[in-house]
Design a protein around this nucleic acid. Structure first.
Length: 224
DNA sequence: CCAGACGTTGTT
DNA sequence: GTCTGG
DNA sequence: CCAGACGTTGTT
DNA sequence: GTCTGG
């Protein structure tokens, strides 16, 4: 479900939308896939909001192999607090993934290959709730920052295509979600509910987007 | 106790 | 069918 | 998420 | 690290 993202805005546009103190340079991507770098906002020193690139696919601190992240690209918001893989990140390492939109595929069986893009009608950025971790490779001593995207039941806009969707946050909830000292995990769960569907529009796009190696503007071009 | 998993999606 | 890689 | 591989030996 | 299953 929550397996392909779009982010084409410049770092300064993202900084304006999310009141960021620090920024990393980004290149536009029309087809961000699991296992690839994805931009995320976290709280840094002094609670300043920082933008950085994280590996999409959460690798827990206790993992022996980084490949466990291949399967931890989403976390169900309803159960994350009870899962060994997500519990500690939910308590203290929350992030926001900015996005122009996300893709969902419709169809059944092998025919599930019809891609739809969901984005804000007003052209604004989406804010997707995520969790992050730092993992150290025992062999090489290298560090990896990784993240996962929280999911919830689909709202009315998404339901015709899929029964799950990413958790979307409102600007009034950004600070509460990001800061574990202000809002504990249990209370933060209150934020992780299906969001109002009216703000989203659905765009049928071509199967060009299906291949994650394709990353250009034709991924989001309307079809039909 | 130790060994082994630790996850979601969508499919049948 | 299931796993890995992008 | 989808696409593509799914294996070993021995060689460059 | 922590939980589940044998």
């Amino acid at each position: 479900m929550c397996g392909r993202m779009v982010l084409t805005r410049s770092a300064s546009e993202i900084a304006d939308a999310f009141e960021l103190e620090m920024v990393v340079e980004l290149s536009a991507s029309y087809n961000i896939a699991p296992g690839r770098p994805i931009a995320a906002i976290r709280l840094g020193p002094g609670r300043a909001r920082q933008l950085s690139l994280l590996h999409w696919g959460l690798v827990p601190a206790w993992a022996k192999e980084r490949s466990i992240g291949n399967r931890l690209i989403n976390a169900r918001s309803e159960t994350a607090a009870q899962k060994p893989s997500f519990r500690s990140a939910l308590a203290s390492r929350r992030c926001i993934v900015p996005a122009d939109g996300f893709y969902e595929w419709s169809g059944t069986g092998r025919g599930r290959r019809v891609p739809h893009l969901f984005r804000r009608r007003d052209g604004g950025l989406l804010a997707i709730a995520g969790l992050w971790e730092e993992w150290r490779d025992r062999a090489s001593d290298e560090r990896l920052l990784s993240c996962t995207l929280l999911t919830t039941e689909a709202n009315a806009a998404v339901r015709p295509v899929h029964d799950r969707m990413p958790v979307l946050l409102e600007p009034t909830d950004f600070e509460s979600w990001l800061d574990p000292e202000r809002v504990a995990a249990q209370e933060a769960a209150r934020l992780l509910v299906p969001s109002a569907p009216d703000r989203l529009e659905r765009v049928l796009v071509s199967q060009h987007v299906n291949d994650p190696r394709n990353d250009d503007a034709s991924c989001i071009a309307p079809v039909g």
